[in-house]
């Protein structure tokens, strides 16, 4: 019996060691470093208590970063899930081009975020960009904007790029869920005289609710953790106009205040944990109800 136990643990040991060294240890040390004056050379001289956290909240740029992260998360979650659901229903219809459409919708997901950002930087250029040139050519000049430099709309422009890139993933998840719904249920509803909307409202939607929850959670986490697309599109600028929490963390690192940067990432971790827990609890309750 003892030998069997020993055998199990010995098989687990290599993987567990790797997990401990590369995942658990960095996470635990990150907690610790958030309370130190860790510098650019990854050395610290003392514990600073909550100074790093106070410094983050005292910085005027932080409020912009938190606000932008919030806008980005809300906008992208709603658009990715909403649009994903609609498109999944569309590509669930049997058409000649269905396979092509499914591939086309998923294509942006596999593209590098940097390549996407570079392409959209060119598309969004105020005078030479495709978008404004198109608007001008169809006499919609009043809609032309400085998409990536006007601080009032910049976060929505970035959210659009994120939605374009990641909606394909929510489509695939929704599509998988839609295809598991037995046809008998919708056929029976049709015979009973249910309209298309009633079928969706009372049969399809309740059955795919767990996937809706998954998509919301994935989108929330992705929104809160955003970095690459923002940094590649605007670098957090102009000035601090499009800073999000992770670009703020990056800037703290580049200033050599690694303790403050780890404190900001710890804060982000707590936000994600709390928000996702609340959302999950609420959605699961809804699911059960």
């Amino acid at each position: 019996m003892l030998k069997r136990q020993y055998y199990r643990y010995s098989m687990l040991a290599p993987g567990f060691c790797i997990f401990l060294v590369f995942f658990v240890w960095p996470a635990v040390s990150n907690f610790f470093y958030a309370f130190t004056n860790l510098d650019a050379t990854f050395k610290y001289t003392r514990l600073v208590g909550f100074d790093n956290f106070i410094s983050i909240f005292e910085d005027s740029g932080s409020s912009i970063a938190f606000k932008n992260t919030f806008i980005f998360t809300v906008v992208t979650t709603i658009s990715k899930v909403g649009l994903g659901f609609l498109l999944a229903n569309f590509v669930n219809i049997k058409l000649r081009s269905t396979n092509f459409l499914r591939s086309a919708l998923f294509f942006p997901v596999i593209l590098s975020p940097i390549a996407v950002a570079l392409a959209f930087t060119a598309i969004f250029h105020p005078s030479r960009g495709f978008l404004n040139v198109l608007l001008q050519s169809v006499h919609l000049d009043f809609l032309m904007q400085h998409w990536l430099t006007n601080r009032h709309i910049i976060m929505y422009s970035i959210s659009f790029v994120e939605t374009w890139k990641w909606t394909g993933l929510t489509v695939i998840l929704f599509l998988a869920a839609l295809q598991t719904i037995p046809k008998e249920l919708t056929e029976a509803a049709k015979i009973d005289g249910a309209t298309s909307w009633e079928q969706k409202r009372h049969i399809i939607f309740p059955l795919i609710l767990p996937v809706v929850n998954t998509n919301i959670i994935i989108s929330l986490i992705g929104g809160l953790k955003v970095f690459d697309i923002v940094y590649a599109l605007t670098g957090g600028g102009p000035g601090n106009a499009s800073n999000v929490i992770n670009t703020m963390v990056y800037k703290s690192f580049s200033q050599g205040r690694n303790g403050e940067a780890t404190a900001a990432s710890l804060l982000l971790f707590v936000f994600i944990l709390v928000l996702v827990s609340i959302t999950n609890k609420y959605l699961n309750k809804d699911n059960r109800g």
Partner: peptide
């Protein structure tokens, strides 16, 4: 960039620099 975008005045730029300098100096004790 903030100056040319109209979000900071030249005086505010130097104030922001001072704030960061103090922060970094304090971090180094």
């Amino acid at each position: 960039q903030d100056v040319v975008a109209g979000a900071k005045t030249p005086e505010q730029v130097q104030e922001a620099e001072q704030k960061e300098l103090v922060k970094n100096a304090k971090a180094k004790d």
